[in-house]
């Protein structure tokens, strides 16, 4: 394995998702290197969430493939080149390698912060309770919540809930982390405490794809930024380039509308 990171971890090829006749994402192509940090931006309804949700097959793509670290998600190619769909249990197993953080946190409402984090390791990875608790405590410490581990989600602020959600995803030791607008439901102060945690992750070279409107975050951590519009990936470039001198007129217009470009 190439340790300096120039090694594709994820390859999304010609990915299309239709809802009825409507394209939510159309012929998307995307490669993410190991340790790379990717940010997706674009107007509402441009297909950012759909693209993320197709990567871990929460949404089954209409066509196209998702390849993660040596295997296709959702199926495989036979020797004769025909496509065989994964059984539900095969798909479930592959999904473990992809962590996901949702805009609405989605913490398990009946469980404490600690139990939210241990549930996956215990019941999916069959880890002994003691070991799972140890890992969970370390992760809660990492997201600065060690003192809140016994609290129910309803007793935590939004920012705290989102950090527990990040710890929960990390507990599965994923190869790839997906963030779908992790701070959109939070006020600026809480946004920062979540972004700080994500920044630390980025510094540790966690491979991540982040949908966000936080341009500051994108500038700081992204290796590459993708701009989506009308279900299409319009262009991609390092943030310094994309935010200052986009090639496509649609990107320029979006950045102007967001007051990023004049």
């Amino acid at each position: 394995m190439n340790m300096n990171g120039a090694h594709p971890l994820l390859k999304v090829k010609n990915l299309t998702k239709k809802f009825g006749d409507h394209f939510a994402i159309k012929e998307a192509n995307l490669e993410v290197m190991r340790g790379e940090r990717v940010v997706l931006i674009g107007p509402s309804g441009s297909g950012k969430s759909t693209l993320l949700r197709c990567i871990n097959y929460l949404e089954v793509p209409t066509s196209g493939t998702v390849w993660l670290d040596g295997e296709y998600i959702g199926g495989r190619y036979n020797d004769d080149g025909s496509w065989v769909k994964d059984s539900p249990s095969q798909l479930t197993k592959k999904r473990q390698h992809i962590g996901m953080v949702f805009q609405s946190f989605n913490l398990f409402a009946h469980l404490s912060a600690l139990d939210n984090v241990t549930l996956g390791p215990r019941w999916v990875l069959n880890m002994p309770k003691k070991e799972a608790v140890e890992i969970a405590q370390q992760l809660l410490e990492k997201v600065h919540l060690e003192e809140h581990s016994h609290k129910l989600p309803a007793q935590l602020s939004g920012g705290q809930q989102q950090r527990v959600a990040i710890a929960r995803a990390l507990a599965m030791n994923p190869k790839l982390m997906l963030f779908d607008e992790p701070t959109s439901a939070l006020d600026p102060r809480l946004t920062n405490e979540v972004l700080d945690v994500m920044l630390e992750l980025a510094e540790e070279k966690m491979t991540m794809i982040v949908v966000t409107h936080e341009i500051g975050f994108a500038r700081e951590v992204a290796d590459v930024v993708f701009f989506l519009e009308e279900a299409t990936i319009v262009e991609s470039a390092p943030p310094a380039l994309l935010f200052s001198d986009p090639k496509d007129e649609r990107t320029r217009q979006f950045l102007v509308d967001c007051n990023i470009l004049k």
């Binding site: 929460l58 539900p88 479930t92 962590g99 989605n106 996956g120 999916v124 959600a165 929960r168 599965m172």
Partner: peptide, 18 residues
């Protein structure tokens, strides 16, 4: 139950039954 609960469960690698 909010459908985000099930999605979060699937996203950590649980089967539908789990």
């Amino acid at each position: 139950i909010d459908k985000g609960q099930k999605e979060a469960a699937l996203a950590v690698g649980m089967s539908e039954v789990k």
